[in-house]
Write a protein that binds this DNA or RNA. Structure first.
Lengths: 221, 221
DNA sequence: AATAAGATGTTGCAATTGCAACAGGGAGTT
DNA sequence: AACTCCCTGTTGCAATTGCAACATCTTATT
């Protein structure tokens, strides 16, 4: 388990907990490691689980089928990422999604009940891991909320304004460098790339903003 | 405080905790009640806080200004609702939103640190309130995730299919009654109402689904 | 330097969508 | 019954957007 401690120290669930403390915690949480081969199913939609998964190595896809049976890739996770935490923490036992290994993968399974119940040893790291669990959920919430607000807008221009408003706030400045290229930005905003380019051009022509590559300056009072 | 116990018992944060236990918990959490007049600002964007608010009575709007200074109403909350929990739980001290009372309002302020730290009395309800806090965040997450998936679709038809797929899953049946009228559904999907009607008509004509008012039947294998 | 592969900008065109205006229907009130 | 209010469906029209095809530019690799 020693080789896992590097991964876990960087995992959001174990932030601020020392390696030695982590290994004690894992014992106390009765964590179980399991390996999966490429293309193996880690969790099937409809399965019951009260376990939260931590990706020790490899990578998986989170998949959901729609009404017409089309497979929809919701996310692709790598080392250190959590999965199944959302519905397990919500007290929903049946998984709404499938999880499939796309490489040979190792997963550390944690029992949610063991995380939130104080253990017999009443170890001090429990408080920290609970705090981290809450933080993980809350941050995901903020991310989703932000994206939701943006996607709620009807036009590309409004979506862009929403996104740039966020950036401006995070950078505390009217000038900032965005972390997306055009293709990625179009994906994030869920619009056509060429239409995005077109709209950016218009907005610059109208004097609302300036940009060179990923460096933006917005002109507002 | 006795008159608050009815509200709090129904509040998601105190679910499963008895009235007597709640009042003990409030003491131990050092909860503070505060009243606000209509139009008074409860929390201003940019303010620091490590408190979570519970609406005891009245109602508030969550407001955020965009780059052009336009005020955007993100939500309207009523009795029993929580606010500020997302960013406080994420460890973000500065509020990204403003909260304004739109009626005379009473708020119960809870210190987040007191919630997650075990109290000197090591009272048993702490575990429960933490579990509830996690559940609240996780459920909001699921809601936002679902909506996000739907809003990510490019066409009205795809958005409808996404929404109806969710309904079908929740009801475990191809026939179900949706909780939205047309106007509300259009708002939820962030599309034009008349365009929504038009698309529903087309889909019915193509034999994909049938509906009478809010009763839907989807035709899939 | 040459080449390849991927990202970005541009533009015409067709399809979708939003908007506006209007008509019909249901629920509640007087 | 007459009236009002609100929700829903319909349709023409204009604007926006997605799509496709292509040119240009960047970056990495050999």
């Amino acid at each position: 388990m020693a080789d896992n401690s590097i991964v876990l120290k960087a995992c959001s669930l174990f932030l601020g907990i020392k390696s030695l403390e982590i290994s004690m915690l894992l014992t106390c949480l009765q964590a179980r490691e399991k390996a999966y081969l490429k293309n193996e199913i880690v969790l099937l939609a409809g399965d019951k689980t009260s376990m939260i998964g931590v990706l020790l190595s490899g990578s998986v896809q989170i998949i959901k089928e729609d009404m017409l049976g089309r497979k929809n890739i919701l996310a692709e996770l790598t080392q250190g990422d959590l999965f199944a935490e959302t519905f397990v923490c919500a007290g929903i036992e049946v998984s709404p999604v499938s999880v499939v290994a796309i490489k040979d993968t190792r997963v550390l399974w944690l029992n949610y009940q063991h995380i939130i119940s104080s253990c017999p040893n009443s170890c001090a790291y429990h408080t920290k891991i609970i705090e981290n669990m809450i933080s993980v959920l809350a941050r995901k919430n903020i991310f989703l909320n932000t994206k939701n607000t943006i996607l709620s807008k009807h036009s590309i221009r409004e979506k862009l304004l929403g996104y740039l408003t966020e950036c401006r706030e995070n950078f505390h400045s009217n000038s900032f460098t965005i972390p997306f290229g055009r293709t990625e930005l179009a994906d994030y905003l869920c619009v056509d790339r060429s239409a995005l380019s077109r709209e950016l051009g218009k907005m610059q022509a109208e004097g609302m903003l300036d940009y060179v590559k990923n460096d933006f300056t917005v002109h507002v009072k």
